Simulated scan of single mutants.
Amino acid sequence: MTEDLIIQTIEPVTHDLGGFKVHRTLPSRPRTMVGPFIFFDQMGPARLDIGTGIDVRPHPHINLATVTYLYAGAIDHRDSIGTFATIEPGAVNLMTAGSGIVHSERSPSAERAIGPELSGIQTWLALPEADEEMDAAFEHVAAADLPIVQSGGATARIIMGELWGAAAPTTTYAGTIYADIALAPGASIPVDPGADERAVYVSMGEASLDGLRLEPMTLYVLRPGIAATLRSEQGGRVILCGGEAFATPRHVWWNFVSSSRDRINQAKQDWTAGNFPKVPGDDKEWIPIPEVPKTVSYP
């Protein structure tokens, strides 16, 4: 049965960032991308100490779009095109790096005062070659503006793309599907069979796919075109993601994604030389380029 439904299972690499953990399934040695998704992190869940918070200092990106989606907590986003936006649960922050952007992510002061919660999914989407060097952009989509689909006791919020006949207003550059599915105890929902490449990921609780138990924090790449049903006996949270298959490979090194290794090498030189723009209101600190990055592709 597994071979009929699942073509690849990707277990996470877990990084302890001091106070919270991040579970990463893309990129991995077995697979770099699922549709345009080239990076898939689950942050937390965690409760940080009072007076502390997350402080991701300014750092650069090129040739990708980042998507931040929270289950709990809040994050202040600042970037080099002048954006300041606070993301809260159920909303989407879409930051398009294009030719280059720098941003920081920090816990708001109100969250620090009570001990911040942190729980959510952060993904990166590779851009089509024609859009890799587009101007940087930022888009915040409120939770109330994302469509909700309800079926069989399941509630699915469409984060990007079109699923089950409902379309999110979030900008896409390549064909993309992305949904947060909350399964009540005993609930079920059919997995939309569209898209070239699809994957499911249990972020909380438990779920199964046509009777196959899905391990938490594991990315399951589905066989193209299969129709299957997600179910949960005790309740769970599942991410469905994917989209069109890219015809040309993408390379990943640290925070840089590109179809060109030379472009990534140029970005390394530019960050080291201080040639990227600064983040207004957060320009006193930055993350230095690592000698050995934790995020790389495996050609």
Score class of each variant (00 low, 15 high):
A195T: 06
T155Q: 14
I158P: 02
A179R: 05
I159Y: 08
D210M: 06
A184E: 15
E162I: 03
G165F: 08
L214F: 08
E197P: 08
Y201E: 03
G165H: 08
Y178G: 08
R198W: 07
I181N: 10
T176C: 10
R198V: 10
T172Y: 05
S203W: 02
P216C: 03
V200G: 01
D210V: 03
S188D: 13
W164H: 15
A199H: 07
D180F: 09
T176K: 03
E162T: 15
A184N: 14
I159L: 14
Y173M: 13
S188G: 11
L163Q: 13
V200D: 03
M217L: 15
A187Q: 04
L209H: 10
L214V: 04
T172R: 14
R157D: 00
A182N: 10
M204R: 13
L214Q: 09
A156C: 09
A166T: 06
L163F: 02
A156R: 07
G205L: 00
M217C: 01
A174M: 10
G153N: 09
I181V: 15
D196K: 12
G165K: 05
G194R: 14
L183C: 05
R213P: 00
T176Q: 03
P193V: 08
Y173T: 06
P190D: 14
P169R: 12
D196F: 09
L214A: 12
L163V: 00
G186F: 11
A187P: 07
L209T: 04
D180M: 02
W164A: 04
V202E: 01
P216A: 06
V202T: 01
T218N: 12
T155W: 00
A174R: 15
V202C: 05
E215D: 15
S203F: 05
E206S: 15
R213S: 14
G211W: 09
Y173A: 05
I177Q: 11
G175E: 15
T218M: 12
G153Q: 11
P190A: 15
G175I: 03
I189C: 07
I177T: 12
A174G: 13
E162A: 14
L214H: 06
G161Q: 05
A195E: 14
E197G: 06
A166H: 13
V200T: 01
P169C: 11
A174T: 07
Y178I: 00
D192T: 04
R157I: 01
I189Y: 06
V191S: 11
D180A: 08
L212A: 12
L209R: 07
G205Y: 01
A156W: 10
I159K: 03
E162P: 00
Y201T: 01
A199N: 04
A184P: 06
A182H: 11
E215N: 14
G194K: 13
M160C: 11
V200N: 02
T155I: 12
L183G: 02
S203Y: 01
D180S: 12
P193T: 09
D210A: 10
M204W: 07
A156V: 06
T218Q: 13
I181K: 08
T155G: 00
A168N: 09
S208I: 02
Y201G: 01
A174S: 15
